[in-house]
Structures are given as C-alpha cells and as structure tokens.
C-alpha cells in the first residue's frame, strides 16, 4: 500500500512525531511505500537541526533524517507554517534576510500543494497529532 503521513505536532511535547516515525518505519519494514511525510502546524518544528535533546533520550530529528536517507523518504515542511515558526532553508534565509538557516538533512521546504498531492496520490493519508 502507498501511504502518506501528516505530522501536525512538534517533537517532545507530544508523542505524535514519535508515533508517525514508528508507523513509517513499520510500514516500510512490511514492504509498503511512503509517498511523502508532510509536516504542518507545529509539526514543522521537527525539521530544525538545532534541537539538542539529552544524550539518553531519542533525537527525533536525527531519527527522521536517518530514515529519510535510508529509504529516500520525501520529508516536506509546509513553507507558510515554517516561516511563522522560524524554520528556514538556505534559500529562504537569504530571501528573508536572516543570518542563518536551520533545516535538517533530508527535509525540504515546499508548499501546501504537496499535502493535497499526497492525499491524491496515496491510498491512505494518515495524520499524527491533532
């Protein structure tokens, strides 16, 4: 089956991103396809590479980046939601006159059309976080 995943909560406050990652990993292990993971609302905060959780805790950003590298996952961060919350890639940082970017490896910033397209293309769209 071809899944699309939506993550609507940031890391650590809620378990949504953890659950989404576990779901993606389990689906891939069963041979399913992940068409795209779309990060919206506070979910965009999963995409900063500047999180530094305690060493004995999981590092969600790294888990997502590693899963993306291993399976060529398409991790898409909503640009409008990202701009409100300070998630920038190098191009956006330059365009907005900011002094640095913070997007983590494997993530890309794009528009909400990517969410609609995921809904169209996937057999199931699964949302994590309310």
């Amino acid at each position: 089956m071809r899944f699309a995943i939506v993550v609507n909560e940031g890391p650590y406050t809620h378990q949504a991103s953890d659950s989404a990652w576990q779901f993606a990993k389990a689906a891939l292990a069963k041979g399913h396809e992940i068409f795209r993971v779309f990060f919206y609302h506070d979910g965009v905060n999963n995409a900063t590479r500047y999180t530094v959780p305690p060493q004995d805790d999981r590092n969600l950003q790294k888990l997502w980046s590693e899963l993306a590298a291993e399976h060529e996952l398409d991790l898409v961060v909503c640009i409008a939601a990202a701009q409100r919350r300070g998630i920038l890639d190098a191009d956006e940082a330059k365009r907005q006159g900011k002094d640095g970017d913070n997007i983590a490896p494997g993530f890309r910033i794009s528009g909400l059309g990517q969410l609609i397209e995921a809904g169209i293309q996937a057999d199931r769209l699964v949302t994590f976080g309310d």
Binding site: Y40, G111, L112, G113, L115, I116, E117, I120
Partner: peptide, 8 residues
C-alpha cells in the same frame, strides 16, 4: 490548505 487545495 483549503485555498491552496482548491487549485487541484
């Protein structure tokens, strides 16, 4: 999302 999605 609704406004962007309308184009699809």
């Amino acid at each position: 999302v609704v406004l962007i999605g309308a184009a699809f």
